[in-house]
């Protein structure tokens, strides 16, 4: 059925210029701006916490009083397992490391791993999903099989296995940790992107692109991509939250980043277990708290985005209408004049 909607006001030239490349993103930003109520709160709270986390991570060398592996300063060794005081606000560990510095640098590690993991899995997952969804056939079947197998695996176990494999190749650094986590997340992007590519492939505009003579690579880049990345930001933020947890899990099991390479919350927590039994709460509390806050921030952001972008969750805001008083139209009765040639007015 035809719905002739009227153009709703002029479009600012800059808005459309921006949208030229990333038309899909334009819709996302518009939806975010329109968000109200709880989703809006989640979105903003999540964004603020996540921003704090990122700032801490980026400026760690400026914020932290010492480096993550500093155990002495000014010719003195730091106290061993010292409780929080003026010099060491968060106390020190059994290795005389400053807990505050380790916590702050931990954010940095988490961010690095998270970014790398998200970027790797995003690129690979989206690419594979697009290809599988658009071409279908045996390639699709094989990819789906592999991805489903990965997906069905307990994710921590998968990360551990991947961690073993990669550490053999690349050592126990940030990249290895990121790669182990990447393996866990690729299937998520793959599934979502493949599903939307499958439905977008049947869309008339894709058909039209084919009718224009576009090559598959062009169709995928110009017609599918913009329409299937809609759901990706949500997964990305959720994965970011999850990635911090997984990284910590690996670290806790001693499989993550080597302590000499970077500060890592999971490793610190593992070390702090004995301390906690001995009544030393500071070595476990601060890294743990940092982790919870970071995860909370990204989760809120992800949930908020999900509420805002997911059309089934979105509800139109109701604005109440007050009807002004109605003035009825006047009625005029035409006299039934026999000599008025009715046809005249008609033709």
């Amino acid at each position: 059925m035809a719905t002739t909607t009227l153009p709703t006001g002029p479009i600012e030239p800059d808005a459309s210029a921006k949208g030229t490349r990333f038309g899909g993103l334009r819709r996302i930003t518009a939806a975010i701006r329109e968000a109200r109520g709880v989703p809006r709160f989640m979105l903003w709270a999540g964004a603020v916490i996540s921003a704090l986390f990122v700032i801490t991570a980026v400026f760690a060398p400026l914020i932290a009083p010492y480096s993550f592996d500093t155990y002495r300063s000014g010719g003195h060794n730091f106290p061993k397992q010292g409780s929080p005081d003026g010099d060491h606000w968060f106390g020190t560990t059994v290795q005389s490391l400053d807990v505050l510095s380790r916590t702050v640098y931990g954010a940095r590690t988490a961010l690095e791993v998270m970014l790398l993991a998200v970027v790797f899995s995003l690129i690979l997952g989206v690419l594979l999903g697009l290809v599988a969804g658009y071409f279908g056939g045996w390639l699709d079947r094989i990819l789906v099989l592999v991805m489903d197998a990965l997906f069905a695996f307990p994710y921590l176990l998968l990360a551990i296995v991947a961690g073993f494999v990669f550490s053999g190749i690349a050592g126990g650094g940030v990249v290895t940790a990121a790669l182990s986590i990447t393996v866990v997340y690729i299937p998520q992007y793959f599934r979502v992107v493949r599903a939307s590519a499958l439905s977008a492939r049947e869309a008339t505009f894709v058909e039209a692109a084919r009718a224009m003579g576009a090559k598959p690579s062009v169709v995928i880049r110009k017609y599918l991509f913009g329409n299937v990345i809609q759901s990706v930001p949500v997964i990305t933020t959720m994965n970011a939250a999850d990635g911090i947890g997984t990284l910590a899990g690996l670290g806790f099991l001693g499989l993550g980043i080597q302590p000499t390479q970077a500060a890592e919350w999971g490793y610190d927590l593992d070390r702090a277990i004995d301390d906690a039994n001995a009544g030393m709460w500071w070595t476990s509390l601060y890294p743990g708290l940092a982790m919870v806050i970071a995860i909370l921030g990204f989760t809120l952001l992800g949930e908020g985005l999900n509420d805002v972008l997911n059309p089934t969750m979105r509800r139109r805001r109701i604005s109440k209408v007050l009807l002004p008083a109605h003035t009825r139209r006047r009625t005029v009765t035409a006299p039934a004049l026999p000599d008025v040639p009715e046809g005249e007015a008609v033709k």
Partner: peptide, 24 residues
């Protein structure tokens, strides 16, 4: 100016100045 409703001899009602002026 909003046109009135004109009841024509045929029973047809039309809201238009053309018929309104013709009628009156």
């Amino acid at each position: 100016v909003e046109p009135p409703e004109v009841v024509l001899p045929t029973g047809v009602v039309s809201a238009c100045w053309q018929q309104a002026i013709e009628a009156d």
